[in-house]
């Protein structure tokens, strides 16, 4: 092994497949959909022992500044950290890659509270914004995306087209979509081609 490791850049599943630019029928210069990949994320899957959920929540708060939301199908956020509910006593903790999230969490969330699994390379995340965000999602999922029903903070696991996804509602017209890396190219194609009628901007990854 050489002493100085070469600079290694993470290669997203979409690298080489992303088409940045304006597409489809953009009306009045305003796209109905804006798509941007959120890349180089740290993601840790956390599965709490059923009798340690409260203590585990506190440990997560200590490590990340925010405890998981009290209710299922909800996300919590603080600064750059998002805690996504993905099942009973199970969460994905997501941050833009900056610190060793797995090690940080491991320090506070000990074996007797939960198991931790590094999933930082397993998911691709798209941020979708725009007035047609809900129309786009309705093409693929049977969730009720009405503004009164799918509200900021909601975090639902669902089938979007063929793809198993987690949809994190972040605003009236903003959603983060998480999906398995191996499906990313196909899902990206579905998202972009389904957006053409609304007019689409694809941005460089954030």
């Amino acid at each position: 092994m050489p002493d100085t490791a070469p600079k290694i850049i993470r290669r997203s599943a979409l690298d080489g497949h992303r088409h940045v630019g304006d597409f489809g029928t953009i009306k009045g210069g305003v796209p109905g959909i804006v798509i941007q990949e959120r890349r180089a994320l740290s993601i840790v899957h956390l599965d709490a022992w059923a009798d340690q959920v409260v203590a585990c929540g506190k440990a997560i708060e200590k490590a990340c500044g925010t405890a998981p939301a009290a209710d299922p199908v909800k996300a919590s956020e603080k600064n750059d950290t998002t805690v996504l509910w993905v099942g009973p006593n199970r969460w994905l903790i997501v941050e833009p890659e900056s610190r060793d999230l797995f090690a940080t969490l491991s320090a506070d969330v000990t074996d007797d509270l939960a198991t931790l699994t590094d999933q930082g390379h397993s998911r691709v995340c798209w941020r979708i914004t725009g007035p047609n965000m809900r129309d786009l999602l309705a093409k693929g999922s049977t969730i009720d995306f009405d503004q009164s029903q799918f509200i900021p903070g909601d975090c639902v696991g669902t089938l979007l087209s063929h793809f198993t996804t987690v949809l994190h509602c972040r605003g009236d017209d903003t959603v983060d979509i998480y999906a398995a890396r191996s499906f990313a190219v196909d899902l990206d194609h579905w998202l972009t081609s389904s957006s053409l009628e609304y007019g689409l901007w694809v941005l460089e990854p954030a």
Partner: peptide, 8 residues
């Protein structure tokens, strides 16, 4: 099994 959601 809720395979597309919570996997329960």
């Amino acid at each position: 099994q809720h395979v597309a959601g919570c996997r329960q």
